[in-house]
Write a protein that binds this DNA or RNA. Structure first.
Length: 840
RNA sequence: GGGUGGAUGGCGGAACUGGCAGACGCACAGGACUUAAAAUCCUGAGGCUCGCAAGAGCCGUGAGGGUUCGAUUCCCUCUCUACCCACCA
């Protein structure tokens, strides 16, 4: 028979799928829908193995469910705004649009070569005005709802990308994209109030049973809800006598200036957040972050202001990473100012130190050195009093062997209570006394969305000298990116220099006004693309809710773990916004999530700089897409890291040819009839295999074992030599093999399917069903253990009872000698599974 | 420091709900086919000891303990490792 000519066959089926619109999805309320989504690629230029893995996994789900008779939507598109396009523009003098579109064209071709069952009619690119128009529309809707605001903020600034980064985009103080050290810079920026949804984003996890525990825990950590209390500590000053210029002592009072009264000021407080209100009696000092406003406010009262100011300046120049990596704590005591511990009434010193973060809680802490490592370190260094308020078994505060749980001591009426109970009791007392109130705190910060870049969605706002900030009229959307722009390396947004873009009219008063030149974070684009896919060409609305609600939520989302805390939080948030705007009727966008592992070579990530890249093009050219897909799905379970192996790939290529050659076996007629026994065994193997593959894909998502079991069935067919005279059984098994493999190696399967005379596409064929009756056996082989050690095996009739089996076993020729001279203490028989004889 | 996983042959990886550890594949060895090689088909194989051999015995899922007739699986302690977060009060 002829060889399997991979490239020709694959190209032909790709063409036929397209011509026949085999993967085109249409809303059909009568049919059960299935939405399979893969994370859309950034058009960087070339497809890499990570993409191949992502899309191969996705395609198995899509094809499997399609063959199960579901109405499958399987879209693809391009996350096509972003920095690399601009960098390319500067470096190679090519317009970002041109660069992006060329990459999309090339990568689209590569994707098509993989034979993924996409509905290409739904292709979208986020850099198209038809798409980003709706980013702007959402932005304005959110602005009107009060969810968008502007504020001056210390922002993360990447000096290399020359743009602001969201907190989520800073890793270890470095830019997530280019790894430069991130600086702090004060700028007026646009924010979205994601924190309004912090609680719901957390509680929403209840609905996400189909998400990996790891991702949920990462998000939980990221949102960082903690329970505790806010407390106000009174601040007081040294009674201070002010000297006037002429050296005469001037004393101010509410009763007028005389030359003899003391200065009296209204009471001031310092607000802190703590998760351990039970330790309030142990507070012996307070610390505020160097950015805390109280410092500037009390400038006059702080005797050592110059020293404090120096410390503030020094901290400001340090990057976050420096601050965090410096384990040796530094700080300055504020002379002349002190706080009062509300519980003990004692005066306690206030420090400023950069181990207290400005962005979390209130930027100030009550320090309990006896029960917090950081506070202990600081107290030891600066010789501050340490008061133990929780006594545990190994308490030794001198050695910093402190307890977090134990019995309350040194705390007045609370002494003797367990610290775990004291949290509630002392909080309650704090509330009653009016020192503070119980509250919660989040690590999640507002989403900073403005970027000083060109290649992104323009923020649709207008600055009018008369009316202030005014949103663009919805009917004037989209605000399109001007194409005639200059790229410079000076760090300014190229939009700022574009007169024709900047100068406009105020939508309110029609006077001259200027456009906002910031663009949106590209995570906005990817926050709702899954909804746009359901109605991608709509030019009246982002999408038609009727259609979108049919398809949503996404039944299975497949993508990399690296998006656990950025994209996957933003899009959950966006979905809730869309729900609150009445556009969708679900709470969560993605029902099930599969996070695929990395593809590595020699154990480390493939990267250009390491030069250890395996190019999908070469592999496809040599072995075909089916082989590449099969290997990538077979070599490891989808969630695990996968190390590329040329030898393993070769093995998959051999398997594909082995399946191909089965055609010959099936065709060859034999004179010798197949034995009944052999036929039953083969038939049983087939039904077992259908069961296994169906469960492995549908329930377990274990594609590697699904493929193994088909390999076993193929092996069984090779062993089953009585092909021919068996009333078509081997043909039936072969057809089953082809159907079961279709989600993995679709081109091969289409080709064989048509050569077997089928008129339909295997891609649209019905998934095989197994029948229990063919799996059931009359006799089974059961292992026999003596004292837990395997000593033999016997065949038993499935219906025989324990006594019959016992008689049979103890007389078995292999077991009998082992039992010789010993007493049977216990005989355990687990039906059709195992026999264990306990002897003495 | 906090969180979440993981550790099984030479390698990638299997093993239902506590029931024959090592499926399937790679690499390896032997055989058939061939003038020869490749390809293909068939067979073998966790380790150690004994045996010419068929085979027999012991050990074996990171380490130590526990529960159980029986543990890769459950519990405790520890080691190593990957990823995420991290002076988060």
């Amino acid at each position: 028979m002829s060889d399997y000519i991979v490239n020709e066959i694959e190209k032909r089926w790709q063409r036929l799928w397209k011509e026949n619109k085999v993967f085109h999805a249409v809303k059909d309320s009568a049919k059960e829908k299935y939405y399979l989504l893969v994370m859309f690629p950034y058009p960087s230029g070339k497809l890499h193995m990570g993409h191949v893995r992502n899309y191969s996994i996705g395609d198995v789900f899509a094809r499997f469910n399609r063959m199960q008779g579901k109405n499958v939507i399987h879209p693809i598109g391009w996350d096509s705004f972003g920095l690399p396009a601009e960098n390319a523009a500067i470096k190679h003098n090519i317009h970002p649009k041109k660069w992006t579109k060329e990459n999309i064209a090339h990568m689209g071709e590569q994707l098509k070569m993989l034979g993924i069952s996409y509905d290409w009619d739904r292709e979208i690119a986020t850099c198209d005005p038809e798409y980003y128009k709706w980013n702007q529309w959402f932005f304005i809707r959110m602005y009107k709802k009060g969810l968008v605001f502007r504020k001056s903020a210390n922002v993360n600034w990447c000096p290399s990308c020359k743009t602001v980064l969201a907190n989520e985009q800073v890793n270890q103080g470095k830019c997530w994209r280019c790894d430069s050290t991130v600086e702090q810079k004060e700028l007026i920026q646009w924010f979205i109030k994601i924190t309004d949804y912090a609680d719901e984003l957390l509680d929403g996890h209840e609905e996400l049973a189909g998400w990996p525990e790891q991702v949920l825990s990462m998000q939980k950590n990221w949102i960082g809800k903690s329970y505790g209390a806010e407390m106000d500590f009174k601040i007081d000053f040294d009674k201070k006598i002010k000297e006037s210029d002429d050296g005469i002592i001037v004393i101010k009072s509410p009763y007028g200036s005389t030359k003899a009264t003391l200065e009296i000021l209204p009471p001031k407080t310092l607000k802190i957040f703590t998760t351990r209100p039970d330790t309030v009696f142990g507070v012996t000092f307070m610390v505020v972050s160097p950015e805390h406003q109280i410092l500037k406010e009390f400038k006059e009262k702080i005797k050592n202001w110059r020293e404090v100011e120096e410390y503030i300046t020094k901290s400001a120049s340090k990057s976050n990473i420096e601050r965090a990596s410096n384990k040796e704590k530094t700080g300055v005591k504020l002379e002349g100012v002190y706080a009062v511990n509300p519980a003990t009434g004692k005066n306690i010193p206030i420090f400023t130190a950069d181990y207290v973060l400005t962005g979390y809680g209130t930027g100030a802490i009550m320090a309990v050195p006896a029960h917090d490592q950081r506070d202990w370190d600081f107290a030891k260094k600066y010789g501050i009093e340490i008061t133990e308020v929780i006594k545990g078994e190994n308490s030794d505060i001198e050695k910093s062997a402190f307890e977090e749980e134990g019995v309350i001591v040194n705390s007045g009426q609370f002494n003797g209570i367990k610290s775990t109970d004291a949290i509630d009791k002392i909080s309650l007392w704090v509330e009653e006394k009016g020192y503070g109130k119980r509250t919660t705190n989040f690590k999640l910060r507002e989403w900073l969305i403005s970027r000083q870049r060109y290649w992104g969605t323009p923020i649709p706002m207008i600055h009018c000298p008369k009316c202030g900030i005014v949103p663009v009229d919805e009917k004037d959307l989209p605000v399109t990116l001007p194409e005639n722009i200059k790229f410079t390396d000076d760090g300014k947004s190229p939009l700022q220099g574009c007169e024709e873009f900047v100068n406009t009219k105020c939508p309110k008063c029609a006077g001259p006004a200027k456009r906002e030149t910031d663009t949106m974070d590209t995570f906005v684009d990817s926050s709702w693309y899954y909804a746009r896919y359901t109605d991608p060409k709509n030019d009246k609305k982002p999408f038609e809710s009727d259609i979108t609600n049919y398809w949503l939520p996404v039944d299975q989302y497949v993508g990399g773990i690296e998006h656990a805390c950025m994209h996957l939080i933003y899009s959950r948030f966006w979905h809730k916004i869309m729900r609150d705007l009445g556009l969708v009727n679900t709470n969560e966008p993605f029902k099930n999530l599969l996070t695929q592992g990395m593809v590595t070579l020699g154990g480390s990530a493939m990267s250009k700089s390491k030069g250890n890249i395996v190019s999908p093009d070469e592999i496809i050219e040599k072995y075909g897409a089916d082989t590449a897909r099969l290997f990538i799905l077979f070599a490891a379970p989808p969630e695990k890291q996968l190390d590329w192996s040329d030898d393993g790939l070769e093995g998959c290529w051999r398997f594909i040819n082995r399946v191909w050659r089965l055609q010959e076996l099936v065709k060859t007629k034999s004179e010798i009839p197949a034995t009944q026994e052999a036929k039953e065994a083969l038939s049983r193997s087939m039904h077992l295999c259908i069961k296994k593959v169906t469960e492995d894909i549908g329930k377990e998502h274990q594609f590697n074992t699904a493929i193994s079991s088909v390999m076993e069935l193929v092996n069984a067919m090779y062993v089953y030599k009585h092909h021919g005279n068996d009333e078509g059984l081997s043909l039936k098994v072969y057809e089953t093999i082809v159907l079961l493999l279709a989600p993995f190696t679709p081109h091969l399967c289409e080709e064989i399917w048509s050569l077997l005379g089928k008129k339909e596409f295997v891609s649209a064929a019905k998934w095989p069903q197994y029948e229990e009756k063919y799996i059931k056996q009359d006799t089974v082989e059961v292992p026999v253990q003596v004292n837990g050690k395997l000593r033999g095996k016997i065949f038993v009739n499935v219906s025989s009872n324990e006594q019959e089996i016992k008689d049979c076993v103890i007389n078995d020729e292999k077991i009998k000698p082992v039992l010789e001279g010993r007493q049977i203490v216990k005989f355990i028989y687990v039906q059709n599974k195992i026999i264990n004889i306990v002897v003495k």
